[in-house]
Design a protein around this nucleic acid. Structure first.
Lengths: 370, 370
DNA sequence: TTGAAAGCGCTACCAG
DNA sequence: CTGGTAGCGCTTTCAA
């Protein structure tokens, strides 16, 4: 009997059986009405839908997932929410994933945890795919995901040799572009301020930058470790950089926020941007465009990167297909603003420190707030 | 027979039955080993756990949720990820929710959608609770959630009369504090730049500010609509504000980012902060503390707000209890930095525009980057 | 404390 | 195209 187990339910418990009973059809029919690509007559489907809305019926996703082994959920692992670049990425990810009717399970590892720790849990939730931003996983874990047929993609990072999808900005090319940009504009004493050591993004930017600088015969290039991608890191690294006998005439920072921190240190040292030092960042976060910063920077193609990540995990393929791990590098674009200038014809290497000392002192006073 | 349905599974399919068979116990026993507060002997549990790890068994959360009607997931609805205040809130939410062993289902409504549209979907996922930041819901939807016994809390917003939990900074009190702060420091021509019109947060700040200003006999207070909480909004609203015959000697902005935009407009108008105009923001996002901004602002007690939200939805209570809707207002704290100054003894209302015109022109030139 | 049995609400397969 | 039936993997009575 259809009613044999219809106990009184507290609330929210209208099931496919209930709808079926009202309509005098089988429960299977209700299920079919809610399954795209199920064979059901136009008419029956309409009746079911009508009754469903009348009764307030919605299929129980949990029960469905139990059978289909797909939850309609995409997991996002994001290690850092504070750097303004990540909200931009997260925003784009949510838009594109939600546009495909998927939900988002967000995981933010706290310091002691790492990505490997959380993946088993995510897999338990039968997520359709996993997007990992700015972090990586062990090859063992990558294999575990492959075994479960859950596609994983690293966004903004890649690990050569790791059997896993990866999408990233072409950081090597971007580094080279920046080198050319500075060389073309007559800079002679460049510097690079690194972010998180060991991160592929960071290393590639540095590698491309230094290599191209060498090819152009510009240098030597000063280098400074930031440690991470924060304002503070950019600030302190720049201070250290300025202890050199001669200050650089251009500094390329591994991230915009570091560059902003660096500009603060330059101001503190009475060095003007861009007159004394050109500054270039990376990411093109919203605040880079603020007039007060006017930061020349490399724009990460976030939209394209996210689109590529989503494509590569096969979110648009039903049934899902597992493809061989691929690495996709997407070109960034240099955006010129007011933190850089052309030094050609300004006397090869710009003025000496002494030359503009008086001017700078004046400016310094004026800029002080109290 | 236990093996009657053990077809070859592609992967990742070790079930409680498998473990049971290996151990020669019943499947129920396996279940009990993974259920806190289930009666099982110490020894049996240990054996089960050992076998489980050996076989790589993990309980299927989906199947569990189907029965228990709880998914161990908390839903977060966050309308705006771009304003740097929200990443701070999201970060804190994720930390505190994950610390309680819950997962996070994130939903970011895109313009046409609103919160009411998404709630049914979230309910389908049997989430344990829903946290909605800076947005509200219809009373019908609030009732639907109550019917399903899913607790909902509004964070950073409240709706008088709506039967729903709400946690927010005490914006009225904060507005009053700011008014007192400025009055105490001899400001005579205050202004308020609003954010999103109609938002309770925004209105309360304004209300408290104006009321207290009136009580202190300071004013009249100029007012300008921002429209939203962006840099641009702060910038353009301030430009409009400065078209008045006499510029204000203090501006209170509905958010930090607006304040930063406002400072840009002030700079553009050759008005110095804080010499000509004191600037106060709201939120205390990380960049408010950067030396280049040095923004005096009201710090939102994010940690406490999040903790209150989590407590109020009963995330720590097992079994969950539904409590009567409560509104919790938490005091913010005014953080004084370098964007405000004491005008007492500087001539009651500060200098006239003419008085410092020459100085400002100099400074303006110096500050230009190119 | 343990095992057996009955489903949670749904999809998927099999006949008709 | 539709109705029956058999589970998905687990929790939860109910006896033993």
């Amino acid at each position: 009997m259809a009613t044999n187990s219809r106990k009184k339910r507290a609330a929210a418990g209208v099931t496919a059986h209930d709808v079926a009973r009202v309509l005098g059809v089988s429960q299977s029919t209700i299920s079919r009405a809610f399954t795209v690509s199920a064979s059901i007559s136009r008419e029956t489907k309409a009746r079911v839908m009508e009754a469903a809305t009348a009764l307030g019926y919605q299929p129980n996703i949990i029960a469905r997932s139990l059978i289909t082994r797909r939850s309609n959920i995409v997991a996002i692992v994001m290690a850092n929410l504070v750097d303004p670049f990540y909200p931009v990425v997260l925003d784009e990810l949510t838009q594109q994933i939600q546009a495909r009717g998927r939900q988002i399970l967000l995981f933010v590892p706290s310091p002691p945890q790492d990505v490997d720790d959380i993946l088993p849990t995510l897999l338990q939730y039968q997520v359709d795919a996993i997007v990992i931003t700015s972090a990586t996983v062990s090859s063992a874990m990558a294999r575990a995901c492959a075994a479960r047929k859950t596609p994983v993609v690293l966004l903004n990072r890649y690990v050569p040799g790791l059997e896993i999808h990866a999408v990233s900005c072409d950081n090597v090319a971007a580094g080279r572009t920046v080198a050319d940009f500075l060389a073309d504009r007559g800079h002679a004493r460049p510097a690079f301020v690194a972010g998180l050591p060991g991160a592929s993004t960071n290393l590639d930017r540095q590698r491309g930058f230094l290599a191209r600088l060498g090819e152009r015969g510009v240098g030597p290039c000063l280098q400074e470790e930031g440690g991470d991608y924060t304002f503070e890191a950019g600030f302190t690294a720049t201070r250290r950089l300025l202890r050199q006998r001669e200050h650089p005439d251009a500094i390329f920072y591994a991230s915009d926020i570091m560059a902003v921190g660096g500009m603060e240190a330059l101001r503190e040292a009475s060095l003007r941007v861009p007159h004394d030092v050109s500054v270039i960042g990376f990411d093109d976060v919203p605040l880079a465009a603020w007039p007060s910063h006017g930061l020349t920077t490399v724009r990460q193609p976030v939209k394209d990167m996210v689109a590529a990540a989503i494509e590569v995990v096969g979110l648009d393929n039903v049934p899902p297909i597992m493809r061989a791990p691929t690495t996709r590098l997407i070109r960034g674009e240099l955006v010129e603003r007011s933190s850089t200038m052309d030094r050609n014809g300004v006397g090869a290497g710009g003025r000496t420190r002494a030359a503009s000392a008086a001017k700078r002192a004046t400016q310094r006073r004026a800029r002080r707030k109290t």
